[in-house]
Design a protein around this nucleic acid. Structure first.
Length: 406
DNA sequence: AAACAAATCAACCGCGCTCTA
DNA sequence: ATAGAGCGCGGTTGATTTGTT
């Protein structure tokens, strides 16, 4: 193309902000139009710098295979990665003799061929974990997947969309907000509900920050691994997919089992979820004698975070009126639902319905009958029951899959 | 048994982030 | 500081399977 074929500024703006189809039209137009308008922009530079800026195709599409993978392709990919690893996905297909783009290879590997992938039906515990984490993290499937070893984010996402979401909806719970559809936290509900929502939001933000911190530490540890140093030997394993040593919200719920028999005492969690080397807990959830949930966050873990422990009182985190509780209980038949602790108003409802004397499933029924009444001015006795309920419920959700907690 | 609907899930697409030169 | 490459993520699609009439 000659330098004389220059693009008018307006055309440039349109070109840069348009889709590929429009760009092609513009290029077509330019190829037939005399460059009557003077301008300073060279088309060659445009096409080079902006046509694919930030959105370059992952590979040359022409001639590349799409769609389902054949066993032969799988074998090629497996063999290559086993021998060479996957340094660069873009370069991999050519080296492996595959007519696929690197992206497709990466997806096939991470979602299907990876040897550590666990397939088959999701366990009760896994379902509970997904629901809990989804309530906390939303559609952050990769973050959720880090808590479900050997499950891919894609698999979890699919399972959520095809099973769990529908089940929640069927039970009258908004799968997006995890709140009761009929008793949502609207502006007309009490302030405590708003506080609960705010606190949960705070927890979610905290968890997000923690995940980001872990990701950062992961990157740093990889760098350290490349150049081992004495300190690196003591660095915490930060790959959360291998069971993070940090106590996140999920672990807090699960870890609450530890002192089930004396729920009003202070709890600290030192359990090592993965059975790996014992590492100091970076965060922990405690139930103090004043019946406050104390969310302990190691001061040096998150940059810019408040160094003080985050303390959520029961009433800050979880309190809804009895109407909401009743609404939430309606339709709950499935045992796994008892594991929905800690999330939104569903969690709140559960918490208020559970006592020492009743297991979670009984709680649902009782609440429907209105036998478990709670006033907004909770008594100390209720507080005790409340935390007993929390711990009981968390305990009930544990399965043999969980490592024994010391 | 056939036709249709619903469910499932592997794979794709496009966006945005991070890293590097 | 910036552009570009590479990668990961989340949303979506569509082929296949399963269930229902």
């Amino acid at each position: 193309m000659e330098n004389s074929e220059l693009i008018p500024p307006v055309m440039l703006m349109i070109y840069c902000s348009s889709s590929v189809a429009w760009r092609l039209l513009i290029l077509l137009y330019l190829s037939f139009s005399p460059s009557g308008l003077s301008c300073q922009f060279d088309l060659r530079k445009i096409t080079h710098h902006t046509a694919f800026m930030g959105r370059s195709p992952c590979c040359e599409k022409i001639g590349l295979k799409k769609g389902p993978w054949t066993p032969e392709e799988d074998q090629k990919l497996l063999a290559f990665i086993e021998e060479h690893g996957h340094g660069s996905w873009r370069a991999l297909p050519a080296k492996a003799g595959l007519q696929r783009c690197g992206k497709s290879c990466r997806l096939r590997w991470t979602n299907y061929l990876r040897p550590d992938i666990k397939r088959g039906k999701f366990s009760l515990q896994e379902e509970q974990t997904i629901i809990q984490l989804h309530a906390l993290l939303g559609n952050r499937w990769s973050a959720i997947a880090t808590h479900l070893p050997n499950r891919t984010d894609n698999e979890i996402k699919n399972y959520w969309n095809t099973h769990l979401k529908k089940r929640l909806a069927k039970m009258g719970i908004d799968p997006v907000t995890h709140k009761s559809i009929s008793g949502t936290l609207t502006g007309t509900t009490n302030n405590k509900s708003a506080k609960a929502a705010a606190s949960l939001s705070h927890m979610a933000q905290w968890e997000s920050a923690r995940l980001e911190a872990e990701a950062r530490l992961d990157r740093e540890s990889k760098i350290r691994t490349a150049t081992p140093t004495p300190t690196a030997l003591h660095a915490q394993p930060t790959n959360v997919s291998a069971a993070s040593p940090c106590l996140d919200v999920l672990h807090a719920w699960q870890g609450a089992k530890i002192d089930l028999e004396s729920p009003t005492s202070t709890l600290t969690f030192t359990e090592n979820n993965s059975g790996m080397l014992p590492t100091p807990r970076t965060n922990r959830l405690e139930v103090s004698e004043s019946n406050s949930v104390m969310w302990h966050q190691r001061s040096d873990e998150l940059e810019g975070e408040d160094n003080d422990w985050q303390i959520f009182s029961k009433h800050q985190v979880l309190e809804l009126d009895s109407k909401e509780r009743e609404d939430d209980f309606i339709g709950c038949e499935e045992p796994w639902f008892s594991g929905m602790a800690g999330v939104g108003s569903g969690f709140t409802s559960m918490m208020f319905g559970v006592s020492n004397e009743h297991d979670a499933s009984e709680c649902w029924g009782e609440s429907n009958n209105g036998q478990t009444e709670h006033s907004n001015q909770a008594s100390d006795e209720e507080d005790k029951n409340y935390w007993n309920g929390v711990l009981h419920m968390v305990n009930s959700e544990l399965t043999p899959q969980s490592p024994p907690l010391v």
